[in-house]
Design a protein around this nucleic acid. Sequence first.
DNA 1: CTCCAAATACAACTACAGTTGCATTACCCT
DNA 2: AGGGTAATGCAACTGTAGTTGTATTTGGAG
Lengths: 207, 207
Amino acid sequence: MTAQGDPTPGTVRPGGRTARTRLAVRDAVLTGLAEHGYPGLTVEYVAERSGVHKTTVYRRWGSVEGLVADALDLAGEDTWTPPDTGSLEGDLRALAREVTETFGSASAAAAPTAFVAAAFQSDRAAEALRAFYTERFARCESVVRRAVERDEAPPGTDAGAVVRAVSAPLFFRALVTREPIDVPLADQTAAAVAVAVRAGAYLPARR
Amino acid sequence: MTAQGDPTPGTVRPGGRTARTRLAVRDAVLTGLAEHGYPGLTVEYVAERSGVHKTTVYRRWGSVEGLVADALDLAGEDTWTPPDTGSLEGDLRALAREVTETFGSASAAAAPTAFVAAAFQSDRAAEALRAFYTERFARCESVVRRAVERDEAPPGTDAGAVVRAVSAPLFFRALVTREPIDVPLADQTAAAVAVAVRAGAYLPARR
DNA sequence: CTCCAAATACAACTACAGTTGCATTACCCT
DNA sequence: AGGGTAATGCAACTGTAGTTGTATTTGGAG
């Protein structure tokens, strides 16, 4: 999960100017994504905006994809926890609505969209994205765990499959087919998955 | 759906050398994608491989994204029809397995993956991708229509939502999180959606 | 406080993607 | 068949992304 741009392990200088530079660059990356989108983000822009010389940016991050991958590593280090509404369908609906909100406004969608775009360009960004979602979905599995405890879902339900089934149709429309997504669609998706869970369609024995 | 690379409407020269050039270039694009992947595909490679001068490629297609968008337009002009196995779950399972097959081998996945990647880079490719999937999913809706006729699905079922719900989790894992997808996963996804359909979770009244 | 190593700044350079003006070729129409 | 026009080929050019070698600055350790 550690960014490749980090000083090599065991370095003597973890803080100070290096840390300031990194933060300034990360800030410039997010600003640039919001303003020009991923295709318009250039190393030169980040260098100018952050006040860090472009040589330094190239040496530590290597490319635009490296910059985005580093920003993605940072995004994974938050304290987000899945919703807890007291019912399976309520939790799934809240999860789906969060996706809808993220991709509802262009400014909020800029960074997540860029993360996916960068993953198509470089293996490092792809790995960072994979790690991000692995960790994020692992957090979400508590939703299913609680549902099992409430007898809303059969024991052994494949929690990972459930949380992916709720998110995927919305991600797919937002990122691949560019169809509009809204709250009713999120609710429909959550309801459908909740029905399937209760029916035992996500028991891993079926795989 | 007409490619931007086409001669302007009403042109006097729809066939002949122009058509040969276009086919040679399209072929080179697909070969290049399979060999080097999207990030490694360059206009210069396509020019050399196709025997068409790079100036011509730049003039007619404009960029790598234009080349990919044109190839995508071509891909949409096929005679593919959705499976007809005689049951809803069978049809959904067959659809899901097709997705699995597409992204199962690196060579088969190269073009579809590139289409999505290009859509993040240029609006023209994004529009071509949107058109492709809109048309493709419209064809798939016959699966749901037949299920309604067989009383396997309630009348008024949102066919578009159903076919997207079957495909999306597989696309999402293949393209975004880069998780492995296999036949059991396809079957699980299809079974879950079939259960939800039968329970009436995809009635558009819920939106 | 001073010294040392790491990180950054600077400037010049390289390479290649993409452009432009013009010559040439090939196709369609009469 | 042959003339006109669209499309392609060609070669030289431009701009900029990315590189390299070196000087300078910074921050921590003793």
